[in-house]
């Protein structure tokens, strides 16, 4: 074989391949970064550099006007699955003391007789987020809102881990167990509704979603309706508002009655 140098401008293959590749890169870059931004009539570019930055995907404020602010308080809690994992026993103990003021509604064992949520064994991140939202005003409730302003972040952590520590007890008012309705196991894909069970247990659990078995049907219906009409809006990325708005009144009824009839001890978090 002839000993020709490959990486040399004397080599025809080198010249051609590098030349064609470079030409392609330059041509496509001109097309993508200059021609296309100018060709789009709805994209207003302030000049060549602006066009290039826009096509390169550098975020910019497209308007000098300030962004629209919501007329209500939005939740500022960021949920992660590592939240409140491995609590200390001191924290649980402090939570038990603090929880005395909650017992009148949520029950001394965390199981309510007043159509308030049962908190015994609930995920700590769920309780913590709701307390934070009550304090910030992202969620409002005539009974809960006055309690929250006095709680520090540590108080909320303590309460959350204490209630999580309590054993899940059968609900006070369980009805006969009823079969799972379609909305719980299938959802309604054509209306963009995921199955309730894919976040709230049964099929899967998602961070930030409470388990619902044995909760008061009246409470769950009230919350779904509040999500649907926008009275409650502290859900992450509007997940529950979008779902509740698309649910029919019968589906709300079925889902709430179904979950209320399920004993929590049958629920298994880790499958």
């Amino acid at each position: 074989m002839p000993t020709e140098r490959l990486f040399s401008t004397a080599n025809r293959w080198f010249r051609l391949s590098v030349g064609i590749t470079a030409a392609l890169v330059i041509l496509t870059a001109l097309g993508g970064f200059i021609l296309l931004p100018y060709a789009q009539s709805d994209l207003k570019v302030a000049g060549l550099w602006d066009a290039i930055c826009s096509a390169a995907g550098i975020p910019k404020l497209t308007s000098s006007a300030s962004s629209v602010q919501p007329t209500f308080k939005t939740s500022d809690v960021i949920m992660t699955s590592a939240m409140l994992a491995n609590p200390s026993s001191e924290s649980i103990g402090r939570g038990a003391t603090l929880a005395q003021q909650c017992a009148i509604c949520h029950g001394p064992t965390g199981v309510s007789r007043a159509d308030s949520p049962n908190l015994a064994g609930q995920y700590p991140a769920v309780i913590f987020k709701q307390l934070k939202d009550f304090k910030s005003g992202a969620r409002t409730n005539a009974v809960m809102s006055p309690f929250a302003p006095h709680l520090t972040d540590q108080d909320m952590v303590d309460l959350a881990v204490y209630y999580h520590y309590l054993p899940r007890l059968p609900a006070y008012h369980p009805t006969q167990k009823i079969p799972a309705p379609r909305i719980v196991i299938n959802g309604a894909p054509m209306r963009g509704i995921a199955p309730c069970g894919s976040c709230h247990g049964g099929l899967d659990n998602k961070t930030g979603s409470p388990w619902l078995e044995g909760q008061s049907a009246a409470y769950m219906k009230a919350q779904l309706r509040a999500f649907a009409d926008g009275a409650r809006r502290n859900d992450i990325s509007q997940q529950m508002r979008n779902i509740a708005r698309a649910m029919t009144a019968e589906e709300i009824e079925e889902a709430a009655n179904y979950y209320a009839s399920q004993p929590p001890d049958e629920y298994s978090a880790a499958r």
Binding site: L24, V25, T28, A29, G31, G32, F33, L36, P37, I52, S54, A55, A56, G57, I58
Partner: peptide
């Protein structure tokens, strides 16, 4: 949304290659 349209165009053109 995290990739700029210019790079999408370049990749589209090179895919044709």
């Amino acid at each position: 949304p995290q990739v700029g349209a210019g790079f999408k165009f370049i990749h589209s053109a090179f895919t044709a290659m």
